[in-house]
Write a protein that binds this DNA or RNA. Sequence first.
RNA 1: GCCGAUGUAGCUCAGGGGUAGAGCACUUCCUUGGUAAGGAAGGGGUCAUGAGUUCAAUUCUCAUCAUCGGCUCCA
Length: 646
Amino acid sequence: MIRITFPDGSVREYEKGVSSYDIAMSISPRLAAEVYAATVNGEVRDLSRPVESDATLRLHKWDDPEAKHAFWHSSAHLMAEALEALYPGMKFGIGPAIENGFYYDVDPGEGKVITDSDLPLIEAKMKELAAQNSKIIRSEVSKKEAMEIFGAKGDEYKTELISELEDGTITLYRQGNFTDLCRGPHLPDTSPIKAIRVLSLAGAYWRGDEKRRMLTRIYGITFPKQKQLEEYITLLEEARKRDHRRIGKELELFAFSPKVGMGLPLWLPKGADLKQRLIDFMTKVLKERGYVMVSTPHIGNVDLYKTSGHYEKYGADSFRPITTPQEGEVFMLKPMNCPHHCEIYNATPHSYKDLPLRMAEFGTVYRYEQSGELHGLTRVRSFTQDDAHHFCRPDQLKEEFKSIIDLVQYIFKVGGFSESTAQISLRDPENKQKYIGSDENWEKAEKAIIEAAGEKKLVTTIAMGEAAFYGPKLDFMVRDAIGRKWQLGTIQVDYNLPERFELTYMGNDNQKHQPVMIHRAIFGSMERFVAVLIENTSGKFPIWLTPDQVVILPISEKFNDYAKTVFKFLNNSDIRTLIDDRNEKIGKKIRDNELKRIPYLLVIGEKEVESGTVAVRRQGEGDKGAMKPEDFIALVKGEVAAEIKV
RNA sequence: GCCGAUGUAGCUCAGGGGUAGAGCACUUCCUUGGUAAGGAAGGGGUCAUGAGUUCAAUUCUCAUCAUCGGCUCCA
């Protein structure tokens, strides 16, 4: 007998070799039906795997990530089984569970393609196979056996993976006629997979290496219940409605033109107004916090970027150099503001008493992003950073860094980004040639970030190899409507540019010293911030940003959805009166039968301002017909609170 | 840049070898104080661009441009 300890501390005895599934059954059959994986002694395992000794046990129901992971991983295998049945000779790469669902990377073979029209076929086959309730069977094999099995199939992707595994650690999972190399864990059988949707196709490089073959990645998602699938699909559709590209068009905030060029956003009047409000707000906050504003040109001599190291690193992938009538004179469209700011620093002498110097600029930069990477306002080729550089003494570094964390948190709170995540991006220790600067400087910089984040009690993840080439950074990420993560705020510690630009200050010892530089952006870029702001608010911007935004939601359920989609972002001058019963002048001009009364709720930002009834003109002199959105816009009396106190 | 898809009226989209349709929006008129009002009439598209096949192409082929979903990249 063995002793099993449950999360609540209770202990039960079972026969040696009992499976987690049987244990669940012993508690209740209903529990067993809802459990998809188990954590045994801290290791997530198949439910069907025997437990051989005393152990702690947690059973995972659907709401646990471990359960979803096993469920979707098994679903990926199911999809592979369907693919193998439908397209004999198909080769398989990897097929993991992901945050929402799963995918499988496959190679359909030379000259063959999978297209969108195949997706329903795959889905149907998966349903057919799932209904067979095949057992999913785990087996341990030697490296040699594994190589023989997949070698015989000619599956070079699997054999490549196996060749890198250690003998004795290789496991296979089989269901029906399909066997896959896999670590698990999996469901005991395919029967719980009831609701299936094959979502989309994409290309993906084998092992993420753009020099290697591109495989076809097939995405799917599954659920135990059909209703859950329907809810998920609805959620996706709702999210798509919040897409900033869609709302930006509806609200006439920004546009793109092929004639101007891809990735070069055009700010329409209302969008430019919104952007300017953000800049004004940020400028005010920065001045309160001791920043000075500077301004620099959109181009710089190529030597500037050679000094900074950017030219060597990115020169080949940038917009081409600008030449002049002067032989040998070359400029670059500025891809970042830092080198310019360094030269501003160098323009005047500095005393230790003057530091820290906080230098800020809303600087527009140009980067030649790969065409396929462009995405609405979140990834563009021309964007305006709310950039700043702190030049400080080494002893001030940590406090400066912490003060910027405060600023980021303040702005995100005001902007309503409650769900941002923080990531510390460090140098890849295996790949040091990607970075400039001495080990000593890197160690100091990384230590400063980790400590500052720790002292601010920031919850962070650490990403190795994600650092900028000149220094480590702390990034603040926010998700967009469809769950993609975007970096907004970033704080970077840099010992290298001060060295390269020979920045100095006079210390109290009357000797020259080198300052430390902190690069930082809070919004990240105006473009990306506006994009994420739109998606977070569905275009209903916070009051402090849009004191003029007026939304009237007539109190009628049927009308509500419509009204929500037509709210407008308006300037005061644009606010057209309605024919308010308070407005006798206009009222007199209109015949009684041209008026209609509608109950309404006036909403400004998130705040209900007033409700009542309003008479609207349906048609008549100068009117453009019935029920234009503007007809529902009432005049707001007086100023609306211009700022939220946080 | 790579893989796949898409590109038809302001918007959402249908169609299909013989030079185009719907809903919403827009214009005009009529009707109507009941919750995105109803009715009638009307304006608007060289069907992304270029070339090829054909008696004939918006519809087929190819190329280009742009967009979308991913991959790679992201100072």
